[in-house]
Amino acid sequence: MAFSAGRSEATRGSAVVPEPQQASQALLRPVRLGNAFEDTVGRLLQTIKLGVLAPGDSLPPERELATRLGVSRDTVREAIKSLADAGYLVSRRGRYGGTFLAESLPRPTEGVVRFGRADIDDALRLREILEVGAARMAATRTLTAAERDGLWSRLSDVRCACLEDYRRLDSRLHLAVAEAAGSPSLVPLVAENRMRLNALLDQIPLLRRNITHSNEQHEAIVIAILAGDPDAAAAAMQAHIAGSAALLHGFLD
């Protein structure tokens, strides 16, 4: 099914506006289930930013999007709500209701630093090298009681964080994982990369569903480290980083 035109013939005329079929099929393809919400947000943002959808055009129905993306309707609904809260989409009720691309998309605030894809890729690749390795190494060590308690405490802090404190407490947990790796030289490298990452993350909205998912991934990382399972710890950290990457590329590319 093609994208619906979204506007009535009275406002757009009698001509049918064709959907760029190949582009929409390529972009709205099945996502990685490990980060279904984040990837769904990223794919929808791609269709918006690459012009597959024009201002005022409607999205396909939730059921169709769920089928095309290979996710649940709840995931699609939450992604749409998040993008509506961020100003990209508008939901309307009634006979001609649905979800529509906003007529005017959000613009960067004046004075905000702009990042290119190369900047994002560099920060994320370095993060993957540092933090996946840190999680794996931490899981190979016999941690002291203080180190184990520190990880649980940092995990608890970020899980209970309000939105204003979330990024700071999230950073503290990731630094605690780096500390648990047992290499003092690693911690300042992770801290420096985290500063770059936070500068990127500060340019995109905090999405509640992403926070919930991130906290589930945080728990998986910490449990794997404490269980002494290096492969599981590395895989959980890799999945966590991939979710952040999907959102950053979606909003900032």
Rank of each mutant, 00 (worst) to 15 (best):
F3L: 12
A5D: 11
A5V: 12
A10C: 07
A10Y: 13
A15Y: 09
A15G: 05
V17N: 03
P20T: 00
Q22R: 10
R29E: 12
V31N: 00
V41S: 01
V41G: 01
L45T: 00
L50Q: 06
L50S: 08
G56Y: 01
R63W: 14
E64D: 12
T67R: 10
V71N: 01
V71M: 03
T75R: 01
Y88R: 00
L89H: 02
L89Q: 00
L89W: 02
V90G: 01
R93L: 06
G94E: 10
R95P: 06
G97Y: 04
G98P: 03
F100P: 01
L101G: 00
R107M: 12
R107I: 13
P108E: 11
G111N: 12
G111P: 10
V112N: 14
F115M: 05
D119I: 04
D119G: 03
L126N: 08
I129K: 09
V132Y: 04
M137C: 11
M137D: 15
M137G: 05
A138G: 07
R141N: 10
T142D: 12
L143K: 07
E147G: 03
D149G: 11
R154P: 04
L155I: 14
S156F: 14
R159Y: 04
C160M: 14
A161C: 08
L163N: 10
D165F: 11
D165N: 09
R168M: 13
A181H: 03
G182P: 01
P184K: 03
L186P: 05
V187T: 09
A191V: 07
A191F: 06
N193R: 08
R194P: 02
A199Y: 09
I211C: 09
I211P: 00
H213S: 13
E216L: 12
Q217S: 08
I221R: 02
I221L: 05
I223R: 14
I223T: 13
A224R: 02
I225Q: 03
L226C: 09
L226I: 09
G228N: 07
D231T: 08
A232P: 04
M237L: 11
M237G: 06
M237I: 05
A239I: 14
A239K: 05
H240F: 15
I241D: 00
G243W: 02
A245M: 06
A245V: 03
L247F: 04
L248F: 01
H249W: 07
D253Q: 13
D253S: 14
